[in-house]
């Protein structure tokens, strides 16, 4: 059972991306790619050779490796359906946030390694927006810790029983909304970034990985699928009561799938924000988190 829980994210994560794309296709009136398309893509990329720019150094090759290793480490901390992650410990939220930071740091410097001005632009935007995400994340976590009295992600989410929910509904709803914005921003989703854009000038995350190809790109794509999963679990966590029963893994995955569909709906119905408008949204998320914290304190 433990192994099952530990393996589940690594197997199912790419499916979320497939779900999002399918939803968008339905909204656009297309049939769309099959749900399993992300897996096919990964397989195809893994079968290719590699091309490296002459400008780059070993940093460029290390970027995808460290990016995925760090994301996997974050995955080991994230709880699933009321079960602790294999690496869960008191204070693991700190590790969670910082390994994601490590992954981002290497993505950014790998982008700068190419010497391309477009990738530099993407890197610059990435660090800008991720900095603004931090207060929202930390104050939201602080509010959750305050409400539950627990210090690990698993402890926090498994303490949120319906009773706790009725007592702290507004604060928890605010945290979940703030984390929802964090989820969209960190996964390069509309309204912050458009994963499907084809104009280098407007991209953020995608432009940073322009020069990667073959197995390296597979590592990157897989890491972003995992990130979708673990940040998604951060949104689902506060909303779904979990006590550790076996069947809760199913409901948890179902909730993640629902989140993916919701993301698809958001992407199909909302326009992308102007770049200058994004900071306002992220500050708004921070404000919601801090309002949640204030409510949790009262």
């Amino acid at each position: 059972m433990v192994v099952f829980h530990a393996v589940l994210p690594f197997v199912l994560a790419p499916l979320l991306a497939g779900l999002i794309n399918k939803t968008k296709a339905v909204f656009a009136g297309r049939r769309g790619a099959p749900l399993l398309q992300p897996y096919y893509d990964l397989g195809k990329l893994l079968g290719k050779g590699a091309v490296y720019s002459a400008t780059t150094t070993w940093i460029f090759r290390a970027g995808p490796l460290i990016g995925l290793a760090a994301t996997v480490a974050a995955c080991l901390v994230a709880p699933l359906g009321g079960r602790p992650g294999p690496l869960s410990f008191e204070g693991d939220v700190i590790l969670f946030a910082y390994v994601l930071g490590l992954s981002r740091f290497f993505t950014v410097i790998a982008a700068l390694d190419t010497g391309s001005s477009f990738e530099g632009m993407g890197a610059s935007r990435e660090v800008h927006f991720s900095t603004l995400v931090e207060p929202a994340l930390w104050l939201g976590l602080a509010a959750l810790v305050r409400i539950t009295g627990q210090f690990s992600l698993h402890g926090v989410f498994s303490t949120l029983s319906p009773d706790v929910w009725t007592a702290h509904a507004p604060a928890l709803a605010l945290v979940a909304t703030a984390f929802g914005i964090v989820f969209l921003a960190e996964n390069a989703r509309i309204p912050v970034d458009d994963p499907n854009t084809h104009l280098e000038l407007t991209m953020i995350h995608e432009v940073m990985v322009l020069d990667h190809g073959g197995p390296d790109l597979a590592l990157i794509e897989y890491a972003s699928a995992l990130r979708l999963w673990i940040l998604g679990s951060l949104v689902v966590g506060p909303l779904l009561p979990q006590s550790g029963e076996g069947w809760e893994a199913v409901s948890f995955v179902a909730a993640l799938a629902a989140l993916a569909v919701a993301t698809g709906v958001v992407e199909s119905t909302l326009p992308r924000l102007r770049l200058l408008g994004v900071p306002k949204l992220l500050v708004g998320a921070g404000v919601m988190s801090s309002l949640a914290l204030v409510l949790a304190l009262v």
Binding site: F105, A123, V127, S290
Partner: peptide, 30 residues
């Protein structure tokens, strides 16, 4: 605690930005 958490979070994000800049621009590219 909230003061510490929020400031450490912002500091962490900005420090990453700053050293991505310092290392990236000085040692990477051409």
């Amino acid at each position: 605690s909230a003061v510490v958490l929020a400031s450490l979070g912002i500091i962490g994000g900005l420090a990453c930005a700053c050293f991505a800049k310092a290392f990236g621009v000085v040692f990477l590219g051409s």
